[in-house]
Computed example of a mutant assay.
Amino acid sequence: MSELPKSWTWAAIGDVTRKSAKWDPRTSDDKFTYVDIAAVDANTKRITAPQTILGAEAPSRARQIIEHHDVLVSTVRPNLNAVAFVSRESHGAVASTGFSVLRPTESLHSRYLFHWVQSPRFIEQMVRQATGQSYPAVSDRIVRQSLLPLPPLEEQRRIATILDQATGIQDAAGRYSQILRAHRRTAFLKVLDDTPISHLPVEAVSAAVIDCPHSTPRWRESGVTCLRTANLGYGEWNWDDHRFVDEAQHTERTKRAELLPGDIVLSREGTVGVMAMVSPGMRASLGQRLVQVRPSDEINREYLMEALLHELHPTRVEHRMIGATAKRINVKALKQLLLPIPPRDVQDRFGSIAMKIRESQNQAEKRLAHVTTLTRSLQSRAFRGEL
């Protein structure tokens, strides 16, 4: 255990937090707000998509009443660090038992705790103690038994204020990327509004539609990138959880086709509607639940990706999805999915706009990565008492 400043101590999280009250919503006919794991954005660390549910329809995991200033820590897939600070808007909601609900006592500042559970040291503790290969998880007990560095309360407030300011700059950089994404979407919708449209199936505008190998990759510490749904965003890549396979596996997993620049990789199961385009110099293979779409010469690839994003949005493609527990769209249905196709010159004009936006997004992502690195460095120094 590392040495702390003299006025600091190590404390178990459970010793400086309380547990939330429990309630079974199924005892009521009223509607309630439900916060499950999917409601927390692991990137922004916010509750972004709570559900409104009738008490009679409440899932068995809906049990924990949350309050403003609580800190939620997802106990499943701790490497993704799905944590959130409960805002005033979510006060009184019911959270899944898949969270540790941490309610600070008077000796612990809530924002200080919120920043600690995002720290590499906390994440490493959770990942190290997680059990389950395909669905790694920790228990609430493990979260509460873990140690955090505890300075005097006034010092906690000072550290929390500094880290709030740093993450505010980080959030602003992230929002700029979202604005660019929205601009691309607006340009696409304008094409649909202003131009005569034909409707063609995906297979008619693709040189190939290739399903992933139906086998679980054997992960390695380093090697060749193997893509997962977690790496896909809405037209961009996410490398927060970067996985690798060895050369032999890469060769095996690319027998059907290598990934080429301009190919579009999309998810067909679970989080459907996320995708990204293969960039020059990128070498990777497909993990499970992914599909590789290679645009034909007859379509602008930037336009094709935006059309796929549009038609595979969950609200538009829901009627084509199958499966009781894990919703998915099969490859046959994907090939038959109709896309709105304007004349080629219109596609190319859109593609030119989209490429400029992509260049701006790439620059924005680089700035965000730089700010994120600085924020993490500041965070590490803060919890060593070096600020």
Score class of each variant (00 low, 15 high):
residue 91 H to S: 11
residue 103 R to W: 14
residue 28 S to E: 13
residue 97 T to Q: 07
residue 78 P to A: 06
residue 85 F to E: 15
residue 67 E to K: 12
residue 42 A to G: 00
residue 6 K to T: 04
residue 75 T to P: 01
residue 75 T to M: 13
residue 86 V to F: 07
residue 90 S to Q: 12
residue 102 L to D: 09
residue 42 A to P: 05
residue 90 S to M: 15
residue 30 D to N: 12
residue 9 T to Y: 00
residue 92 G to F: 14
residue 11 A to Q: 12
residue 56 A to Y: 01
residue 95 A to K: 05
residue 70 D to Y: 02
residue 45 K to I: 04
residue 8 W to P: 04
residue 26 R to F: 02
residue 21 A to V: 06
residue 56 A to M: 07
residue 26 R to V: 03
residue 50 P to S: 09
residue 11 A to H: 03
residue 27 T to C: 03
residue 88 R to L: 13
residue 9 T to H: 03
residue 40 V to A: 00
residue 49 A to T: 12
residue 103 R to A: 11
residue 68 H to E: 11
residue 12 A to S: 11
residue 76 V to F: 00
residue 64 Q to G: 01
residue 41 D to V: 06
residue 63 R to E: 06
residue 61 R to H: 03
residue 89 E to L: 11
residue 17 T to C: 15
residue 63 R to P: 04
residue 100 S to G: 14
residue 31 K to M: 14
residue 55 G to R: 01
residue 69 H to E: 13
residue 58 A to W: 04
residue 29 D to W: 03
residue 38 A to G: 15
residue 97 T to V: 15
residue 95 A to S: 12
residue 9 T to L: 09
residue 98 G to H: 06
residue 89 E to I: 08
residue 49 A to D: 12
residue 72 L to C: 04
residue 44 T to P: 01
residue 58 A to T: 00
residue 35 V to Y: 02
residue 11 A to N: 04
residue 79 N to S: 10
residue 57 E to C: 04
residue 88 R to N: 15
residue 61 R to V: 03
residue 94 V to A: 07
residue 22 K to A: 14
residue 95 A to L: 10
residue 88 R to D: 14
residue 101 V to L: 09
residue 15 D to M: 11
residue 5 P to K: 02
residue 19 K to A: 09
residue 91 H to R: 03
residue 8 W to S: 00
residue 68 H to P: 01
residue 28 S to N: 12
residue 30 D to L: 13
residue 92 G to M: 15
residue 59 P to F: 09
residue 48 T to E: 13
residue 73 V to P: 02
residue 95 A to M: 01
residue 25 P to Y: 06
residue 100 S to F: 09
residue 94 V to W: 01
residue 6 K to E: 15
residue 31 K to W: 11
residue 51 Q to E: 12
residue 101 V to Q: 10
residue 47 I to K: 02
residue 42 A to M: 02
residue 46 R to G: 08
residue 76 V to I: 15
residue 96 S to K: 05
residue 38 A to C: 10
residue 32 F to M: 13
residue 5 P to G: 05
residue 61 R to T: 11
residue 85 F to S: 10
residue 87 S to I: 04
residue 55 G to K: 02
residue 58 A to E: 03
residue 26 R to Y: 03
residue 40 V to C: 10
residue 14 G to V: 07
residue 29 D to R: 15
residue 40 V to R: 02
residue 88 R to Q: 13
residue 85 F to N: 05
residue 85 F to Q: 09
residue 16 V to N: 05
residue 100 S to Y: 07
residue 53 I to Y: 05
residue 67 E to D: 10
residue 52 T to Y: 04
residue 10 W to H: 07
residue 101 V to C: 08
residue 82 A to W: 05
residue 87 S to G: 11
residue 92 G to R: 11
residue 39 A to V: 00
residue 78 P to G: 07
residue 86 V to R: 07
residue 16 V to Q: 06
residue 54 L to A: 14
residue 59 P to Q: 08
residue 51 Q to V: 09
residue 13 I to N: 04
residue 68 H to R: 11
residue 76 V to C: 02
residue 78 P to Y: 05
residue 90 S to K: 08
residue 48 T to H: 10
residue 20 S to Q: 00
residue 76 V to T: 13
residue 20 S to P: 14
residue 58 A to Y: 01
residue 39 A to R: 01
residue 41 D to P: 02
residue 71 V to L: 10
residue 71 V to H: 06
residue 83 V to A: 11
residue 39 A to H: 06
residue 46 R to Q: 09
residue 90 S to C: 12
residue 90 S to L: 14
residue 62 A to C: 13
residue 44 T to I: 12
residue 93 A to I: 08
residue 67 E to W: 00
